[in-house]
C-alpha cells in the first residue's frame, strides 16, 4: 500500500476534479429539478475537445480549457433551450428518460466518431516530490485549476446578478418569478454553466488520465453518488461530498482488490439511498 500522505494527496486531486462535475449536476437539479443523465457525457465531450486541440493544433490543455468550456457552454445552453426546457415541470421521470435518450445519442455517436480507443494527453508529466508525496505536475496544475473554477462558480453565484437569479430560482421558482427574475434564462444559464464545468473536468482528466467515450457513464455513476451524498440540489454539499468521495476512493482502491474497487460507488450509493435518502450533508430539496 502507498504512503497514507500519498493517498491523501491523490484523493484530494481526484476529489477536486469530481467536484467540477458534481457541482454542475447539483446546480442543474436545484434550478430545474432535472436529473441530467447526460451530464457525464459533457465531461467526455470536453475531454475530446482538449484532446483534438492538442493532437491537431498542438494546443496545451491549459490553453484549450477555456475554448472547451465555451463550446460546451453553448452546447449545453442550446440543448437546454431546445429540448430540456420542454420537460421542466413535468414529472422527474420524463426528464430522466429524456436526458437518458440524449446520453445514448451523445455516447453512441462519440463511440463512432472517436472510436473506443483509450487516449490521453502527455503534458507536464515530470514528477514533483514533496513531503514524501510524488505527483506529476499535471495533477498539481489540475488540482489548482479545479479549485479556482469551483471558487469562481461560488463567487459568481454569490456576487453577480445572474448568479443571484440562479440561486433565487433554485430556492423558490414562484417567488423568483414574482420578483421579476427571468427564470427561463436562469435555467439556460445554469445548464450551460454545468456543462462548461463538466467540460473543464474533462479537460483536466485528459491530461491526468485516460479518456474514452464510455467515461461519461462512469463519471456519472460517481457523480450521482457524490451529489446524493451532498444532498440533491445543494451546490456546497456537492463540493464537500466530492472531496470526501475522492479520499474514500483513493484509500478504498489501495486497500481493496482492484477488481472490487469499481463497485465502490455503486455500493456506496445504494447504502446512502437506503439509510440517508436526503444526503449526508445538508438536506435535500427534492423530497418527492
Amino acid at each position: 500500500m502507498d504512503h497514507p500522505l500519498q493517498l491523501l494527496a491523490n484523493g484530494l486531486v481526484v476529489g477536486a476534479i469530481y467536484s467540477l462535475v458534481a457541482v454542475g449536476l447539483s446546480l442543474v437539479f436545484g434550478v430545474m429539478r432535472v436529473i441530467n443523465i447526460a451530464h457525464g457525457d459533457f465531461a467526455m465531450l470536453g475531454a475530446y475537445v482538449a484532446f483534438f486541440a492538442w493532437d491537431w493544433l498542438g494546443l496545451s490543455p491549459l490553453v484549450s480549457l477555456l475554448p472547451a468550456m465555451a463550446i460546451l457552454f453553448l452546447f449545453g445552453a442550446g440543448l437546454q433551450r431546445l429540448v430540456i426546457e420542454r420537460v421542466v415541470g413535468r414529472p422527474l421521470l420524463a426528464s430522466l428518460m429524456l436526458t437518458f435518450g440524449l446520453s445514448l445519442i451523445i455516447w453512441n455517436s462519440s463511440q463512432v466518431a472517436f472510436t473506443t480507443k483509450l487516449r490521453g494527453i502527455s503534458y507536464l508529466t515530470e514528477p514533483v516530490t514533496f513531503l514524501g508525496v510524488t505527483m506529476s505536475q499535471s495533477y498539481i496544475v489540475g488540482f489548482v485549476l479545479a479549485l479556482i473554477l469551483t471558487g469562481a462558480l461560488f463567487a459568481f453565484l454569490k456576487f453577480t446578478a445572474p448568479g443571484k437569479a440562479i440561486r433565487a430560482t433554485s430556492q423558490n421558482q414562484d417567488v423568483a418569478l414574482a420578483c421579476g427574475i427571468d427564470v427561463r434564462r436562469a435555467r439556460t444559464l445554469a445548464f450551460g454553466i454545468g456543462a462548461a464545468l463538466a467540460a473543464a473536468a474533462g479537460t483536466l482528466i485528459s491530461m491526468t488520465g485516460f479518456i474514452y467515450p464510455y467515461m461519461g457513464f462512469e463519471y456519472l455513476a460517481k457523480t450521482f453518488t457524490i451529489v446524493v451524498l451532498g444532498g440533491l440540489g445543494s451546490v456546497a454539499g456537492a463540493l464537500v461530498a466530492a472531496f470526501a468521495y475522492g479520499l474514500l476512493e483513493s484509500f478504498g482502491t489501495a486497500m481493496l482488490s482492484p477488481r472490487i474497487a469499481p463497485a465502490l460507488p455503486f455500493v456506496l450509493l445504494i447504502a446512502i439511498m437506503i439509510f440517508r435518502p436526503s444526503g449526508l450533508f445538508g438536506t435535500s430539496v427534492a423530497d418527492r
Binding site: 429540448v83 420537460v87 428518460m97 429524456l98 435518450g101 440524449l102 445514448l104 445519442i105 455516447w107
Partner: peptide
C-alpha cells in the same frame, strides 16, 4: 443505440 436515443427523446417530447 443512438437511434434508440432519438426514438426515446421524440417519445418523451
Amino acid at each position: 443505440l443512438a437511434t434508440f436515443g432519438v426514438v426515446l427523446v421524440a417519445l418523451i417530447l
